[in-house]
Design a protein around this nucleic acid. Structure first.
Lengths: 244, 244
DNA sequence: GCTTAGGGAGAGCACTGCTCTCGGACTAGA
DNA sequence: TCTAGTCCGAGAGCAGTGCTCTCCCTAAGC
């Protein structure tokens, strides 16, 4: 769309991608096609995606894929990063469709948005919040995208504090917990949120993903029929827990 | 134990396994050795246990293992069942070391016991509460062992209700939630526990495994230093949530 | 134009889960 | 005690995997 042409033979170019353009563009397209195919296979055939099968689907021999991703794990990492971004975007979109003033509604919308994304992208959710993939320790690339959803809920809490919708009850935290939380909020620039609220938020956050994982991983089968209602109930209870 | 003996040649025998005894005993031993080896590999080399590697370790050719487990998934299922039992046992042991009267202490001990087991058996925990294994839907064999830890917490709640340590505040539940919960408590013979308490217990339960998963799967890295203190804080908060 | 880098094709290695066939050992009935 | 049947390990083999290396053509840059 916004991509410029650096058709060689021409001397000028606007917003030129660095270095050789058509090569770079073709490369980017190929990279994208591989990721897209891998994502489709992930959705269809579960988490054990096969690099060879992806190559086959793309219409290329398996060794060719290694020109783009040095290993299967790197492909997986790319998928994970994309998935985090996709989740964050979905969550933020859901949350932003609600009047700014109504912080409880925003809280609910955010939780529901995350759950909806998880339901629609089960295997990607499992990749993000299930057991970590065998070989690899989440590389640096994933930690920033992983924080995005947390930022979204943080924004709600800060707004709630600012507007007075959330008045933190003075709570006593165990010293070790208080120290961890204070260090944390200082580091990330999340000052302004009292430690007690922060701690309760993290508790609720763990509950959120515990509840979604229970539902998605089949731990509530034969127990719950109306999953949505039960989720809503839990997430609303967590709102109460943090003080909303 | 109670089985009759068919030891030909001898008329008497104690603790005779049913039918052909030495065959059966050897078979049981082999089955056990395979499971044990698989469990060790699971602990050492992560969740991608290789049936061939297990066979190699046991000192037998790979096809021989299929005499005992029809497929890799069946071996995994056996490990899962054992893991559930191990977890339940550890949790119950921890909980039972505390005076019966002190229900809050029992609650805390149970949660800590579960977390301690998870820390000591990371990969087995991931097998139980992480993303489900690719191919297979948890077979019937696993659902009863999976319920054991829930029974343990239920016992605490019932005791707390009986002794008056837990007085359920009259809460309004959404209709759909109430229906699900009531059906559930009727089915399982868990009557006597008010729906509102039951629902809150399930919320806390999801929080528990959410928190443990966060810790084990590295989601709190660079955030929390004193994991144990933070866990305690959360689980105590959940005690408050259910009314303990 | 010539040199060089990019990248696909193909063969190959070591590994996997699983099947099948073979042959020896044990068990059970006569 | 002999015989029929059953159990079960060994081995070969199949289709698949991730990954490497070598070959060779094409596009890019001087």
């Amino acid at each position: 769309m916004s991509a410029p042409l650096t058709n060689m033979c021409q001397t000028f170019a606007m917003t030129a991608p660095p270095r050789s353009s058509v090569r770079a563009r073709v490369r980017a397209e190929m990279t994208d096609q591989i990721k897209q195919t891998a994502r489709r296979q992930l959705a269809e055939h579960g988490p054990d995606i096969s690099l060879r099968a992806v190559a086959r689907d793309v219409g290329v021999v398996s060794s060719a894929v290694y020109r783009y991703f040095p290993s299967r794990d790197d492909l997986l990492t790319a998928l994970i990063v994309d998935a985090y971004l996709s989740l964050a975007e979905a969550a933020e979109r859901a949350e932003s469709a609600v009047p700014r003033r109504d912080v409880l509604a925003r809280w609910m919308a955010l939780g529901r948005g995350i759950r909806a994304w998880a339901l629609a992208n089960r295997h990607e959710y499992a990749l993000l919040y299930g057991s970590p993939v065998p070989g690899y320790a989440a590389p640096q690339d994933t930690i920033e995208p992983a924080a995005r959803p947390v930022l979204a809920v943080m924004a709600i809490i800060r707004d709630a504090l600012a507007t007075g919708a959330l008045v933190p009850a003075p709570t006593r935290l165990p010293r070790a917990v208080r120290e961890d939380i204070e260090q944390l909020s200082a580091l990330q620039g999340w000052d302004g949120v009292p430690a007690a609220v922060f701690a309760r938020l993290m508790t609720a956050w763990a509950q959120l993903f515990g509840a979604i994982s229970f539902e998605l991983f089949g731990r509530l089968q034969n127990a719950i029929v109306d999953y949505e209602a039960f989720f809503d109930y839990q997430w609303r209870a967590m709102a109460g827990h943090v003080g909303l």
